[in-house]
Simulated scan of single mutants.
Amino acid sequence: MIAARFLLSGALVLLMGGAATAQDFQPKQKGLVMLNVRASGVLTDADGSIRTAVGADSGLKAKVGDDVMPTIGLTYFFTDHLAVEAIAGTTQHEVKAVGPGVDVTVHKTWVLPPVVSLQYHFAPDARISPYVGAGLNYMLFYRGKDRNGFKVDIDDGFGYALQAGVDVALKDRWSANLDVKKVFFETDASINDGALKTKVKLDPWVVSAGVGYKF
C-alpha cells in the first residue's frame, strides 16, 4: 500500500496545483479524444489456497506482489457526457507460496491487463470533472520465469472492472488526472504439472495519476 499512498499523494498535489493556476481550458465535448499518460500502481489482493492434485489443502497460499509502471489511456467522447476508454500497460509480478515457516518465490511473470470501459462524465464543461465507469479486461500472462525449482502455469482470462476518477483542466488542452480501477479477475494456476493447484482471486486495485491532452 506504500505505492498507493505515494501515487495518491502525488496526484493530490498535482490536482491542487492545477486547480489553483489554470486559466483557459478546453472542455470535454462530443467527438473529443483524450490521451492520458499515467503512473499506475497495480496492487493485487490475491487470495487462493494451494491444494494437492487430489484436492487436499497443502497449508500454503498464493501471494502475488505489486508493481508500478507507466500506462497509456485513450478516451473518445460519444457525447459530452458519455465516453469509452481503453488503457494499456504492462507490469511484472512475483508469485510466492506462503504458509507457516514458508515464504518462497515460485514464479515471476509479466502481465498485460488491457481494460476497456464505458464512462459517464458528470461535469464536462467544468474545470474539475469527475467520472465513473465500468468495463471488461483481459489478463494475459507472458514471459514467465520459474523460480527455485518450481514449474508454474497461469491461465489467461477475462474479468471486469469498476472505475472512478477526476480530470482537472490545467491550461489550453492539458489536464491532470487521478484514476482508480478495481479489477475483478480469478485465474487457475498449476505447479509442477498439476502436483499442486490453486484458484486465485487477483482482484487488483489499479491506482493511477498523470496528465492528459485533448485532441
Rank of each mutant, 00 (worst) to 15 (best):
V102Q: 06
A126H: 11
L112D: 02
P130G: 06
T71R: 01
P204N: 09
A62V: 14
A22G: 15
Y120F: 11
L35F: 13
A195R: 14
K28H: 13
V37I: 15
A169E: 05
I72K: 00
P130T: 07
K145V: 14
A176D: 00
G59E: 12
K28G: 12
R143H: 15
V68D: 00
G165P: 04
L202V: 15
L170A: 13
A3I: 09
Y120W: 12
V207N: 00
V42E: 07
G41L: 00
P204W: 07
Y131S: 00
F6W: 10
D179S: 10
T79D: 04
S175R: 11
A169M: 05
V166N: 05
T44E: 07
G194K: 07
A19T: 09
L74D: 00
E94Q: 15
K171N: 13
Y131F: 14
A176N: 03
D172E: 14
V98I: 15
L43K: 02
R5T: 14
R143W: 08
N36C: 04
T90Y: 10
K28V: 07
P100F: 08
M16L: 15
D24Y: 08
L7Y: 02
A123K: 12
G157K: 06
G18E: 00
L74Q: 01
T44Q: 12
G165R: 00
V42M: 12
S175F: 04
Y120H: 07
M16W: 07
M16R: 03
Q29K: 13
Q119Y: 05
W174L: 15
L12I: 13
T90I: 12
R5K: 09
L140Q: 11
G144L: 11
L82C: 01
F215W: 14
K61L: 04
S208V: 06
T90H: 03
V211I: 15
V211G: 10
F77W: 06
L162R: 01
W174T: 05
K108M: 09
T105L: 11
V207F: 02
W110Y: 13
A62N: 06
V200G: 01
L43Y: 11
G17Y: 05
P204I: 07
I2Q: 13
H93C: 04
A46D: 14
A195I: 08
S49L: 10
V102T: 13
A3G: 13
W174Q: 01
L140V: 10
G210A: 09
G157A: 09
G10E: 06
D103F: 10
D156C: 09
N177P: 03
V104K: 09
A4N: 10
W174R: 01
V68Q: 05
L74W: 00
